[in-house]
Design a protein around this nucleic acid. Structure first.
Length: 456
DNA sequence: ATAGGGTTAG
């Protein structure tokens, strides 16, 4: 019997994954160089993975010292950059270029090279490289390349709104698997909600198409998983299709799918969109685990349905149970308070951003704060906040102040707000209308005063 | 024996 190749079972490799600091990793690496282990792709890929987790530049340095790295090693580093260091995406593309421009006949991209690169192409500024990569796929890979490449290509086109291309690519995949079906469903759901504000009929068709595709998927005997149901439930929310949504909820339970945070959040949202606040809360309450998104959905739900106090209570509960809020949490919580005039609660949310969570409030947070104060008639406070904020106030902020001043009859502040509005948006005709309305009102009062004086 | 695709909230 042949014994296992010692390269794969060397104890140093086991040690690598246990390294918690660069220093220890460095020692193991040194050891691997002296034993000659660092000449082989397998141990090298392990070093690259471990080091890129700790410090990407270190991994890069190691990579640069490898003579004639194989595609395998390129792929290892490229995917590590894209999945763990998204802000460094440019490094992944420069690695890819090194493969392409190497001039080495033996070094060619393979099926493993492309999926993570297409994933990177889903956000700016990398979107324009998608079609370049597509051309490379056709050039470098054998026709009928594997389903991972096909699925990532499909996702890329769906992401930039080219649903037709995505569908065409799907047609070419024989026996699509679960992830591929989920990609196609997601493509439709994403484009249904992305074109918000467009033609409503066309939007709904895409969500209806999700229903149809779900049936087709079931006929093909691929069993839906949690991700499938999240997409289906989102389509129900989009259509306001309560009964289909309840069916999907029952499906999750009947098929013993996990009621995870994704599924939970989409169900909460679906019930809220369908007007069922009680059902939404019950779902929220029964979830085995809740993350920030679940809380955001529920707070937003109470806000929409006019229960500011409840929304605020949920916000406070997050602190007690130790779920960290994010920027959206702060926005929806203040919005909830603003809607029903809970000024003190709303201010408490704003103060907690910095005081309790140590986060610097954003322009948007100031926007909600000013809206809250202005609507409640605390115009001096609102103006003061605008003047003291660390960044330049935008037109939305001044518009909130204007609206509050207008409603509460404070002409002086109304004037200040309008002046800034006109300055920031000289092209917007609405602002001039507001301005002339104000003068019309003021002049009328002067007229009234004159009449009064003349009469006395 | 190591590298790759699909999910939520305003």
């Amino acid at each position: 019997m042949k014994s296992a190749n010692p390269i794969f079972t060397h104890p140093a490799i086991q040690l690598l994954s246990k390294c918690k600091t660069l220093n220890t990793l460095n020692q193991v690496h040194g050891h691997m160089i002296t034993t000659g282990l660092a000449l082989h792709t397998y141990p090298l890929s392990k070093i690259l993975l471990s080091s890129s987790d700790l410090e990407l530049t270190y991994a890069h340095t190691i990579f640069d010292h490898i003579q004639n790295p194989t595609v395998f090693l390129f792929n290892t580093l490229i995917s590590s950059v894209i999945t763990n260091h998204r802000s460094q995406t440019h490094l992944a593309f420069s690695l890819y270029n090194r493969i392409i421009l190497s001039g080495d006949d033996k070094l060619k991209p393979n099926c493993f090279t492309y999926p993570s690169l297409f994933k990177a192409c889903r956000s700016q500024p990398w979107v324009r490289y998608g079609s370049v990569l597509h051309a490379h796929v056709l050039k470098f890979l054998e026709p009928g390349f594997d389903r991972f490449v096909q699925a990532s290509l499909l996702n890329f086109y769906a992401n930039c709104g080219k649903l037709g291309v995505a569908r065409y690519l799907f047609e070419q995949i024989n026996k699509p698997d679960l992830a591929t079906w989920n990609s196609l469903l997601t493509a439709h759901a994403r484009n249904a909600s992305a074109s918000d504000g467009g033609i409503k009929d066309a939007d709904s068709c895409l969500s209806l198409e999700v229903f149809r595709l779900f049936n087709e998927m079931q006929n093909s005997l691929i069993r839906p998983n949690e991700i499938t149901l999240v997409v289906l439930i989102s389509a129900c929310a989009d259509l306001g299709a309560l009964y289909q949504g309840m069916w999907a909820h029952a499906y999750v339970i009947r098929h013993r799918l996990k009621l995870n945070c994704y599924v939970g959040t989409s169900l909460i949202n679906m019930y809220l969109k369908c007007g069922c606040l009680g059902q939404a809360y019950q779902t929220f309450d029964k979830l085995p685990q809740r993350d920030t998104s679940c809380y955001n959905a529920m707070i937003g739900g109470f806000a929409i349905h006019g229960y500011g106090q409840k929304a605020f209570q949920i916000y406070e509960k997050m602190r007690i149970v130790g779920i960290l809020p994010d920027n959206i949490t702060f926005n929806v919580s203040m919005f909830a308070c603003s809607g029903v005039g809970l000024v003190d609660e709303g201010c408490k949310v704003f103060e907690s951003i910095k005081e309790f969570y140590g986060i610097e409030p954003t322009l948007e947070h100031y926007g909600y704060l000013v809206d809250l104060l202005a609507r409640a008639g605390r115009l001096q406070d609102a103006e003061k906040r605008i003047k003291e904020m660390p960044m330049k106030p935008n037109a939305t902020l001044w518009r909130s102040l204007y609206a509050g001043a207008r409603i509460h009859g404070n002409v002086a502040i109304e004037k200040v707000a309008l002046k800034h509005l006109l300055e920031l948006e000289p092209e917007t005709s609405d602002n001039y209308v507001f301005f002339s309305n104000m003068y019309a009102r003021v002049n009328k009062w002067e007229y009234v005063n004159r009449v009064r004086k003349a009469g006395s």
